[in-house]
Amino acid sequence: MIITGNDREKISKLQEQLATEFEMKNLGGLKYFLGIEVARSRQGIFLSQRKYVLDLLSETGMLDCKPADTPVVQNHGLGEFPN
């Protein structure tokens, strides 16, 4: 879960409340959520799905595959046209 807001006291309060009934684990700043990698600096926030894609390639055994812009031949058509 992500917690954000401009009221730091309320944020800590919520943390405390949650900890009274759930076994909470503080992961610190937001780093990875729903497949999105988050990197924060003073200039802004950088989002990427690099890890998500690598995990997906790993799961499907396609890590060694060559990248292609499109996975099928272009303008192939749906069936065969004899003439």
């Binding site: 879960m1 917690i3 954000t4 944020i11 684990k25 503080n26």
Partner: peptide
């Protein structure tokens, strides 16, 4: 980003 809020992440074991 725009309001300079902190982003905290938590997990429930």
């Amino acid at each position: 980003v725009n309001l300079d809020w902190p982003l905290h992440q938590f997990d429930v074991k």
